[in-house]
Amino acid sequence: MNLHAVAAIYRFEMARTFRTIWQSIVSPVISTALYFVVFGAAIGSRIDQVEGVSYGAFIVPGLIMLSVLVQSVNNAAFGIYFPKFIGTIYELLSAPASFLEITAGYVLAAATKSLAIGLIILATAFLFVDLTILHPVWMLGFLVLTCLSFSLFGFIIGIWAQNFEQLQLVPLLVVTPLVFLGGAFYSISMLPPVWQTITLFNPVVYLVSGFRWSFFGMADVALGWSLAAILGFTLACVALIGWIFRSGWRIRT
């Protein structure tokens, strides 16, 4: 096990985060604050409580998920795409490091950054709404798992992407819609029955539902399904990355 390699990649990527600390943190915090003003204060004041929780508080888990998912995918995708783009990937490919070690370095760094952003947004939320967290350990567990699994997914996007447009494509066209339609801003029970069924094919529903349960003790789907969905997604990503490195797809000529 080449742990030095994991640490070297992690440190190098975290240095990139700290170089751009303001872009990294300020923009998600500002955009989340805007969501609170628009959805929480302006629109939320006209919406009744959702299953006993004020609307402003109800959207907090969904807002955190929205940022964490997009950030994880973007961070990890950029982390591995950039060496491909500037050519420094030669060093990764010629290093005595396995795919697990290289992936771990990039994914842990991306997940750390999005976890930090998620926690900062949570802290910001306390400024706007009254919030209690019923199951803080579960909350943190869901957050960490989500950061990791979507960083893995982003890592795959970064390897797949052959230009900057493609790098933006998946977060923009896939992740954001899935989160918006995944119950970030509403409870699934508010939807017409047909849409309730269709929504169950959206993996983000399970994440948001489980995460919201850890705050308020209420969920759209059973907790077990949420956990199974996120673990299944993580394993699928690891398997795919393993195949990518063995076959050399898009990285090794």
Partner: peptide
């Protein structure tokens, strides 16, 4: 830092 990175990557 760039040079340190290389050393770590190669397991040292």
């Amino acid at each position: 830092n760039t040079v340190r990175f290389s050393r770590g990557l190669f397991g040292k």
